[in-house]
């Protein structure tokens, strides 16, 4: 079990906001910190990594105490097994992909670890390239691979995909999920993209002004389960197109694309790539024998 009890004064645009967090999250689970900017999401990651000291509290990761103000325990960042990936890739430009990964390796003899991670992240073919020769998506994959090389107890992802275009983001989300499950790695992801949260999160902590507003599974938080409709599916919007004064929203449900008529007002809150719940009353569907 992992435990976070944190207090810290956040200095935001509207003055000082006290951050007060008290939560636990499961080992091997992907937890998303969701909320507006300034809610304290990145601050929490930085405190877990040891880059910022809380005013008080406790940080326990995989039953190891990293910080406990009452016992005066505060492990330095290098003693905390953390993999940290930011929106900026922060790769060494003068080093190849492989050298970037080797640099992060704690035990330099374990180069097989680098080979293994290059393979899992599908970077083996690019191992001798320098970052400048890579696309944004590839660079972010290298940043993730480098974080994994350290064999972290916790992976901290601070909006790592927000600079990428939709197609690349969707692809990297799939890869991230695959890698996270492969290593059964406790992960905290900061995101403000509901579609991304639906796709990746096993647990969501919604933050506002330094406090936990709500916590639960994505559907508990975002309301899909609070609808009475009996004909209910989750899907992803793949297209929105206008016909006359209405809009036809195409939604990928499983392997099928279904089309739903929506109005201008409705589509204002919808965008391509977004995860949605599709529901209809049990009275509407027509059954015909085949």
């Amino acid at each position: 079990m992992n435990e976070l009890i944190l207090s810290k004064d956040l200095r935001g645009a509207n003055g000082v906001i006290p951050l007060e967090i008290n939560t636990t999250f499961k080992r091997g689970e992907l937890t998303v910190l969701f909320g507006k900017s300034g809610a304290g999401k990145s601050t929490i990651l930085r405190m877990i990594a040891g880059l910022l000291e809380p005013t008080g509290g406790k940080i326990v990761i995989e039953d190891e105490i990293w910080y406990d103000s009452s016992k005066k325990i505060n492990l330095p960042p290098q003693k905390r097994k953390v993999g940290f990936v930011f929106q900026e890739y922060a790769l060494f430009p003068n080093m190849t992909v492989r050298q970037n990964l080797l640099y992060a390796l704690d035990d330099k003899k374990k180069t097989f670890k680098v080979d293994e991670i290059l393979k899992i992240t599908e970077l083996t073919k690019l191992e001798n390239e320098k970052p400048d020769a890579l696309s944004g998506g590839q660079k972010q994959r290298v940043a993730l691979a480098r974080a994994l090389v350290r064999e972290p107890k916790i992976l901290l992802l601070d909006e790592p995909l927000s600079a990428l275009d939709f197609a690349m983001r969707a692809k990297l989300q799939d890869e991230l999920l695959k890698i996270q499950r492969h290593f059964n790695l406790t992960t905290i992801l900061v995101s403000h993209d509901i579609g991304e949260v639906y796709k990746l999160a096993q647990f969501v902590l919604e933050l506002a002004d330094g406090k936990i507003l709500r916590q639960g599974t994505p559907s508990e938080i975002f309301g899909g389960s609070k609808i009475s409709g009996k004909f209910k599916f989750s899907g992803e919007i793949v297209d929105i197109a206008q016909s006359d004064i209405v809009f036809i929203v195409s939604i990928l449900v499983g392997q099928d694309v279904v089309k739903v008529v929506s109005t201008k007002e409705e589509i204002r809150d919808l965008k391509i790539g977004q995860k949605v719940t599709l529901s209809s009353k049990a009275f509407n569907p027509i059954i015909t024998p085949i």
């Binding site: 309301g223 609070k226 609808i227 009475s228 409709g229 529901s279 009353k281 009275f283 509407n284």
Partner: peptide, 10 residues
């Protein structure tokens, strides 16, 4: 009435 869906207030 059969077209009205209910949603619990979050």
């Amino acid at each position: 009435a059969n077209e009205v869906t209910l949603q619990k207030e979050i």
